[in-house]
């Protein structure tokens, strides 16, 4: 039993590292299609983790969550994004990163920061949870960084869903999942959010003719003079 549990620990650590790794790769990814594929891969890793935890810890309801993860995050959402990318002919669009070096250094420091925050939480449980909490909180922050650094709406959605993935991973490995009713609710929300994101792509495209969210900048607290200048410009430019 001892060896089995330590083997289990090692596999979970490996999966945590892989999920973190995919987050890093996604951060530096400029092609939208590859970004979505990486996201699907991360979802798959997540589903594998969930099945593993469910089998080893004999928590049957995690199998349901694993199924949901597989359906939503590996098949449905990446499928939807693929469909939208092709439909909007974005598959050749690059989403350039302005300062790749700074971005990756920032990502690395976020990781250190996560470990630093979790450090005081010593010997909380029998699980070797500390590393896992740090890894998932790093992955969560990396998702946020992805949203900040990329400018295509698709990348922002992927960043958002990565954050969701990190949270889900945390819940699975640290507490063997949330109560089933909560998990079903979360899955439902994620699904609706994905559909609404899809609807939004069309709205944004209709209004600014691309999915570059940097162009969404009409509403801000600008000075009166700036607004007046803006009003003097011909409409529809």
């Amino acid at each position: 039993m001892q060896t089995l549990s330590s083997l289990y620990d090692q596999i979970v650590f490996l999966l945590a590292a892989l999920i973190l790794f995919t987050s890093f790769v996604m951060l530096a990814q400029t092609r939208l299609i590859s970004l979505v594929n990486l996201f699907a891969l991360q979802g798959l890793l997540l589903a594998v983790t969930t099945v593993l935890v469910a089998v080893v810890q004999e928590t049957a309801h995690l199998l349901v969550s694993a199924g949901l993860t597989l359906a939503l995050k590996v098949l449905l959402i990446p499928g939807l994004l693929h469909y939208l990318i092709l439909r909007m002919e974005l598959h050749r669009t690059e989403d350039p990163i302005r300062r790749p070096l700074g971005l990756l250094l920032g990502a690395a420091s976020l990781m250190v920061f996560s470990y630093y925050t979790i450090l005081p939480v010593v010997h909380l449980s029998l699980l070797a949870t500390r590393n896992l909490i740090a890894a998932s909180s790093a992955s969560f922050l990396l998702g946020m960084l992805l949203m900040i650094s990329h400018r295509q709406a698709v990348s922002q959605v992927v960043g958002f869903m990565t954050m969701e993935n990190a949270l889900f991973f945390l819940a699975v490995v640290s507490t063997y999942g949330m109560p089933l009713v909560v998990e079903l609710g979360i899955a439902f929300d994620v699904m609706v959010a994905a559909v609404i994101f899809g609807v939004f792509f069309f709205h944004i495209r209709e209004s600014i003719d691309s999915l570059d969210v940097d162009a969404l900048s009409a509403l801000s607290e600008s000075t009166v003079e700036e607004i007046q200048q803006g009003e003097n410009l011909p409409q529809g430019e």
Partner: peptide
């Protein structure tokens, strides 16, 4: 559309942090 996108993304990220806290 811009306002709604901002609302969605900001509140989405916000609420994800609340989920982190809840977990």
């Amino acid at each position: 559309v811009e306002a709604a996108w901002k609302y969605f993304i900001l509140c989405g990220v916000g609420i994800a942090q609340a989920l982190f806290g809840t977990i």
